[in-house]
């Protein structure tokens, strides 16, 4: 008897009922979703049926970019991470950059490994970071007398070349990547405040972990490697960000964080990063 209960038998009414229910639910949902729910907008007049259907589908003509007057434009940098910028950086020629770098080694150290507290180590730093900072020095977005003068003498291609040179130098900063090292103590329960800020941040103050952008474990283009950087340099830059003296970070990423840090935390973070070797630790 079971053989005439098959789903394709006309004598069995259940498939028809089942499909009917599905089709009915679809029709009801379409009518409710497009014809009723899309029509009611808060702080805006109820839409007519056609506008409601368009809005429900995401085709809107009732919103438009603001045309109201804007405050004077103030941009943090001229650099945007567009494909053309990235291609320019990738085209850097390290051999040509080695000649340009002769202007840098007096302060930044032989092969970009700084021996001074004032100047950052450049060896091993991402070329995108060096390229962007050079452009910001050049345009005055990061005001710093000496570097402004140096950068003005360089073309965009020169910047890419010298960035490629320093990025390829050994014994500097370990490269930043998304590689997460499983290690205890990288949580909000960590008692060392610098380590806690670096790997877990402080959610109550809206501070994400440093490592989410600066590595290890996370990476964001334009964020420099911090491990083994000169501690006094890190601390000084954090203070500049907090005071707004340095404001070339896109959408105030570092300014917003640095403003929330206490001087003690800045000092502790600078020491923590200069001492942390990481898995690729090298001997200086």
């Amino acid at each position: 008897m079971a053989h005439d209960r098959g789903p394709f038998k006309l004598s069995n009414p259940w498939p028809v009922i089942g499909w009917g229910v599905v089709a009915g639910a679809l029709v009801v949902s379409v009518v409710l979703g497009f014809g009723v729910l899309s029509r009611f907008q808060q702080n805006a007049p109820t839409l007519d049926l056609w506008a409601a259907i368009c809005r429900g589908l995401g085709i809107t003509s009732d919103t438009a970019p603001a045309t109201q007057p804007q405050p004077a434009l103030n941009t943090p940098t001229r650099i945007a991470w567009t494909p053309s910028t990235l291609e320019q950086i990738a085209s850097g020629d390290a051999e040509r950059g080695a000649f340009i770098a002769m202007n840098c080694v007096a302060c930044h150290g032989q092969r970009g490994v700084s021996g001074s507290d004032v100047y950052p180590t450049l060896a091993g730093m991402s070329p995108a970071v060096i390229y962007k900072q050079l452009d910001d020095f050049r345009t005055g977005k990061r005001p710093w007398g000496v570097m402004g003068g140096v950068a003005k003498a360089l073309s965009d291609q020169d910047s890419a070349d010298v960035a490629a040179y320093f990025a390829s130098q050994p014994n500097g900063l370990p490269p930043v990547d998304g590689y997460r090292v499983p290690e205890p103590g990288r949580s909000l329960r960590e008692t060392n405040p610098a380590k806690r800020l670096a790997f877990a941040g402080d959610p109550a103050r809206g501070i994400p972990p440093c490592a989410a952008c600066h590595g290890q474990g996370g990476y964001k283009i334009g964020a420099p490697a911090l491990q083994q950087q000169r501690p006094d340099y890190i601390e000084a830059e954090l203070q500049f960000f907090a005071q707004g003296v340095r404001a070339n970070d896109i959408f105030g990423q570092m300014r917003n964080i640095a403003k929330q840090l206490t001087p003690d935390e800045m000092h502790a973070l600078a020491l923590f990063y200069s001492e942390s070797g990481g898995p690729q630790a090298s001997i200086r």
């Binding site: 970019p65 804007q70 896109i250």
Partner: peptide
């Protein structure tokens, strides 16, 4: 999304 900060409606100053 790459050039928001260079100007327009979502520039930092706006």
């Amino acid at each position: 999304p790459t050039t928001l900060h260079l100007g327009g409606e979502f520039a930092e100053s706006n």
